[in-house]
């Protein structure tokens, strides 16, 4: 396959993200990476579950968490997962501009999520004096949720870079795999969040 075929394909194939060997490799390699990320987050969840009782008598999960904000954050992130599905749907139909549009919506929703998370952390620090250093529970909480927030930030930067870089030239066989794995990453972020709101917030409230 010549470079021109990759950058300016005359005919888009059915699965543009897996049309080249490079695309196939990226697809598989990224899935494997997510398998490793599963263990990474499991280690963080395990640490959190081991230490969520170590509150030193103040600022327990039950006392601290408010479910309203967490519910809004969950809705934002779940919806952003759907919008990135729409983006991939348009990619498969070779409708580049609509794909870009849905990705922009995804980024906006992600930014909303990140804003809420920053507000939440600020709130805990200023209103409750609950920090990374207050107790082992504090360390474990900020580390687990913060790792997820870091993933959100990285995902947002990544998708934004892709949107800007390719705006002028449209979809081709070189950038299609990049878009596809970025959307996989974004879904995985949502997977982790489902466990965070369940294990950290809901189970924390139940006590």
């Amino acid at each position: 396959m010549s470079h021109d075929d990759v950058l300016n394909p005359k005919q888009m194939p059915h699965d543009p993200e897996k049309a080249t060997l490079e695309g196939k490799n990226k697809f598989l390699g990224f899935w494997f990476f997510l398998g490793g990320e599963t263990v990474l987050f499991a280690s963080l969840f395990g640490t959190y579950l081991a230490l969520n009782g170590s509150t030193q008598g103040e600022n327990t999960p039950e006392h601290l968490f408010g479910l309203e904000l967490v519910f809004i954050m969950t809705m934002l992130l779940l919806t952003s997962s759907l919008t990135s599905v729409y983006a991939m749907y348009h990619m498969k139909n070779h409708n580049f501009q609509k794909m870009q549009l849905w990705l922009v919506i995804t980024v906006l929703l992600g930014l909303g999520f990140l804003g809420c998370e920053i507000y939440e952390f600020m709130h805990y620090i200023h209103e409750y004096e609950f920090t990374f250093r207050s107790s082992a529970f504090g360390s474990a909480f900020y580390t687990l949720v913060g790792f997820h927030g870091g993933h959100v930030l990285f995902g947002l930067s990544w998708i934004t870079a892709l949107i800007i870089r390719n705006q002028k030239r449209g979809l081709n066989l070189y950038n299609a795999p990049k878009y596809y794995i970025a959307s996989l990453y974004w879904h995985f972020i949502d997977v982790v969040w489902v466990f965070i709101f369940t294990v950290v917030y809901l189970m924390g409230k139940v006590g």
């Binding site: 997510l34 398998g35 490793g36 990320e37 599963t38 263990v39 987050f41 499991a42 280690s43 969840f45 395990g46 640490t47 579950l49 081991a50």
Partner: peptide, 12 residues
């Protein structure tokens, strides 16, 4: 990954 994750969570 899920299997190792499960073992880890059970342990912790």
């Amino acid at each position: 990954g899920a299997a190792v994750a499960l073992l880890t969570i059970i342990t912790f």
